[in-house]
């Protein structure tokens, strides 16, 4: 019944190896494996400049946070990055509690996150 999260993936204009991933729904233990598979596949294909839009991500638990940290680490190991934008207050609180706000690249909105990627080039 893996229906609580949907990922919409699209290209990022003017960002080589870039992808925008829109997370929609709840990220938790019931769908963490499918999310891990989808994003890991992208990274393996060489798309290592990733912006994750959390505007419609209502909820994340510790298992979900674990894979976000994993994506960030894996992308960095391949000279890329995993940036997050539009985090709601409730989700941010959970990120902050485990200290992940200092480990993840978090931006107020998608435009800022994409701008930081273009500035890196």
């Amino acid at each position: 019944m893996d229906t609580q999260i949907e990922l919409q993936i699209s290209d990022l204009d003017n960002v080589p190896h870039g992808k925008l991933i829109k997370f929609m729904g709840d990220l938790d233990a019931t769908n963490v494996e499918s999310t891990l598979d989808q994003v890991t596949k992208l990274i393996k294909e060489g798309f290592v400049q990733i912006v994750a839009d959390f505007r419609n991500l209502r909820y994340v638990n510790s298992t979900g946070l674990g894979i976000l940290l994993h994506f960030s680490k894996t992308a960095k190991e391949k000279s890329g990055c995993f940036k997050i934008a539009n985090v709601n207050d409730n989700v941010y609180e959970i990120i902050e509690i485990i200290g992940a706000n200092t480990l993840l690249d978090i931006y107020d909105n998608v435009e800022e996150a994409i701008g930081s990627l273009q500035a890196r080039r």
């Binding site: 638990n61 510790s62 680490k73």
Partner: peptide
């Protein structure tokens, strides 16, 4: 909290804090 490369082990830390 576990080290940053671990995917699990943070749940009860969150429960404690909340």
């Amino acid at each position: 909290p576990p080290s940053n490369d671990k995917k699990k082990g943070r749940g009860l830390v969150i429960v404690q804090m909340l």
